[in-house]
Design a protein around this nucleic acid. Structure first.
Lengths: 254, 254
DNA sequence: TTACACCTTTACGCAACGTCAAAGTCAACA
DNA sequence: TGTTGACTTTGACGTTGCGTAAAGGTGTAA
């Protein structure tokens, strides 16, 4: 297929001006220019624009997008994975902000007096996190100590670390489960690994793990659409697959 | 306390230039100008800057921030709550994007061919979802039923009657919870009724109900986005509300 | 042929500052 | 007392990712 600016713009949900701009800065050149000077885009350009918009969506500057797309070892899959990671990071940041807001709400509710310093704690902490990501751990030691002195943030750190661990587990579970699901065998090694990951994940919340309880939760996943939705969202039947894997794992079923 | 530009800037984690800019556009005027022309900020300005940064953080334009802060019926607490809501919205959007990315990764992994139209489905779908949030639930009913039809929702290990009971319970819980949430008090009678309904619902899956386990599940609802999403989807903060109600119900909290 | 929707380039405008530059201020230290 | 050096001021131009005309050429359907 071939498209003019407006056609491609409508297809992608951007403005023609945007496409002209991308041409101008060399981010997305049209496949060719027709005799009247019209920009004509082909399938390869459609693909490239898709990539561009993906990265743009998460706030990557056009310059960096250019660098990413023109990198020789550019691997579509890898790019997507990185994209995903960044989205996850962004969400973690948002969670932090949310926590800060809620803390402030709580403080207001309790009519607590906050010092001028405390009023900006939330923002600064976020800055610290950002710097940490950017400049590694040297900055963290500097800023971190300051922050520690100021707020005694160890507790916060603990919960955050746990949260990170939890998220990591959750992600791993999702991936292993997806892989295992391909085989279709809930008794397979991979499926059993998924079940074990699920147990680990559960143990974040339950001190009193029991196989019966675990099996019960598995049943719940399938029986109630609210939970099933999460697992089936990726692939229909995944919730049932996980349940079967867990039932085998817990010895409720062979 | 009184601060010069740099002092306040450091306190708040912004640049002096930013403060000068805010002065220039009338967003944050210094308390006074000293004989040498230096900007001097006081406690009231610190508070205002805090408000400004709160809103800036979620992408509100400085112009709108100005409008918000200068509105006569401006209520600090309400502003914070709204801020929180918007953060939750933003995160929901991010979750959508994440889902799209993961879908695309899956598609790539399966070496599926996508048509030019499909390539932009993710973005467009996001638009659809946004509309859905804006224009109510009619669309949701449509999609919901479709999803139901697709997934062939026979519950394997449960009789139909049990399933009907469970669904009824689930619906009742949803309604009671929604009503209780209006009051805002997790200790209210209605909220406690919701907690009890939740216990009944749980007992469909767990033979060994314990208050500790129930409380643990409540924590899990809030701690893990996958479950929180379900409850917060209706009203942000609902998951936390249900947790609080359950914690009170189980005697973990008064 | 004329209307109308498309296309082109050129160019200025916008937010929210960053980043010089040139010049004045303040506290401390030799 | 002079002189650093860290601060302050105003002014002005640069940046990103486009929006929004302006002024003109193109394609086609009535």
């Amino acid at each position: 297929m071939e498209y003019t600016v407006q056609q491609l713009a409508r297809l992608a949900g951007v403005s023609p001006r945007t496409l002209r701009y991308y041409d101008e800065i060399g981010l997305l050149k049209p496949a060719r220019i027709n005799p009247s000077g019209y920009r004509i885009y082909g399938t390869r350009e459609v693909d490239r624009l898709q990539q561009i918009l993906f990265y743009r969506e998460l706030g990557v500057s056009l310059e960096k997008i250019m660098a990413i797309l023109s990198s020789p070892n550019f691997d579509r899959m890898q790019a997507l994975m990185e994209h995903r990671e960044k989205l996850l990071e962004k969400r973690a940041q948002l969670d932090l902000l949310l926590a800060n807001v809620e803390k402030t709400i709580a403080a207001c509710g309790g009519r607590m007096e906050m010092s001028d310093q405390e009023k900006f704690m939330g923002f600064k902490q976020q800055l610290v996190e950002e710097n940490e990501r950017k400049f590694g751990k040297e900055a963290r030691e500097k800023y971190g100590d300051e922050a520690v002195d100021q707020s005694g943030r160890k507790v916060l750190n603990m919960t955050r670390e746990q949260h990170a661990q939890l998220e990591a587990l959750s992600n791993e579970l999702t991936e292993v489960l997806r892989e295992a699901f391909k085989s279709g065998d809930p008794a397979s090694e991979l499926a059993q690994e998924a079940a074990d990951l699920h147990r680990q994940w559960l143990c974040f919340f339950w001190d009193d793990y029991s196989r019966e309880a675990h099996a019960g939760l598995a049943e719940m996943y399938v029986a109630d659409e609210r939970f099933r939705a999460h697992y089936d969202k990726e692939q229909p039947g995944m919730a049932a697959f996980l349940r079967d894997a867990i039932l085998i794992y817990t010895g409720q079923k062979s």
